[in-house]
């Protein structure tokens, strides 16, 4: 497919005088994309705009090249959506709820039932098919939400905080499902607050803050763009003073902090060179552990959002 899965142009939305989203331009092709940002940064607004649940105040969204507006129901064939709010069909049994949505999607009879069975199987809820949603825990309802989103195996999947309230086994299972799903050239947009879980499944990120686009792209690219901050490597091991002295003399470092006897923080502008250097030292057996900040989503998130917040 040539048209991008999602393309937004100058997308904005105000709620009265409250700003939800302001002038968002992004294009998403395929793969898993993490959508990050503090509460109130516009993630849910974006999700609702993408699914045509609310009108844009300005700008527009294209889903696979087609304008998405609340009336444009044909686009919903290519789109699966798990909203962030709780599911609230308390009196329905899980299978009835899914069957209802399958039929609304245009299937009927046996083929609808087939889709429901498949979706339930994928989230591992087949034994719970006849349980009413009211009797389920929040985590189980979250999984049903994911199931209804993948009912038609759409090429675009939008998941808003799908892991919220799930217990650890379900979290892992859902993440596995997302990973598996995206492997087949489909697009998944995953909004989440739990950074290490986003980190575990994707490197491609969109970060929103105050309703505006803060950063978009690969994690390491984003990190490289933040130039004013030097990069930091932390090592633990033996004889660190000598290593420090050596590195200082070669003028590679922009900063150096010693923490106790066995921990050294090294700040540099050229991380790759420093790492190669450390590799040399490490091969001699002096380094026990090595860590760099750009590998961690938390650190990048802190730099981008933490600095500008409040």
């Amino acid at each position: 497919m040539s048209a991008p899965a999602i393309k937004t142009v100058g997308l904005s939305r105000w709620y009265g005088e409250v700003q939800g989203l302001a002038g968002l331009d992004v294009t998403i092709q395929h793969g898993v994309v993490g959508l990050l940002g503090p509460n109130g940064s516009g993630k849910s607004t974006l999700m609702r705009l993408l699914t045509g649940q609310i009108h844009a105040s300005r700008g527009y969204v294209e889903i696979f090249g087609e304008r998405m507006t609340p009336g444009h129901f044909k686009s919903f064939r290519v789109l699966g959506h798990a909203p962030g709010e709780d599911i609230h069909f308390e009196n329905e049994r899980a299978c009835d709820f899914l069957l209802l949505l399958a039929k609304l999607g245009g299937e009927s009879g046996a083929s609808a039932r087939d889709r429901v069975d498949k979706a339930l199987d994928r989230i591992g809820m087949t034994p719970k098919a006849n349980v009413r949603l009211r009797e389920m825990s929040k985590g189980m309802r979250q999984r049903i939400k994911v199931a209804q989103a993948i009912l038609f195996e759409p090429p675009l999947l939008l998941l808003d905080e799908p892991l919220n309230g799930m217990d650890p086994p379900s979290r892992r299972q859902t993440l596995d499902l997302v990973r598996e799903y995206s492997n087949t050239e489909r697009t998944v947009l995953l909004a989440s607050h739990v950074l290490h879980e986003v980190d575990a499944i994707t490197d491609h990120l969109i970060m929103l803050h105050h309703g505006r686009l803060l950063a978009e792209g690969q994690l390491s690219d984003i990190r490289n763009l933040i130039e004013q901050k030097p990069r930091r490597a932390t090592i633990r091991g033996k004889g660190l003073t000598q290593i420090a002295a050596k590195l200082l003399s070669e003028d590679r470092l922009s900063g150096l902090t010693m923490e106790g006897d066995d921990c050294l923080h090294l700040d540099t502008r050229d991380l790759t060179k420093l790492l190669l250097e450390l590799q040399q030292v490490g091969a001699d057996g002096q380094i026990e552990t090595l860590e760099t900040d750009d590998q961690k989503l938390d650190a990048v998130y802190d730099m981008l959002v933490g600095g500008s917040a409040r």
Partner: peptide, 19 residues
């Protein structure tokens, strides 16, 4: 009201059928 107040109507309105 049950559907609208909790936003659950969204499940119906994000299907490929007119509203």
């Amino acid at each position: 009201q049950e559907l609208y107040s909790k936003g659950a109507i969204g499940y119906f309105f994000t299907r490929p059928v007119p509203r």
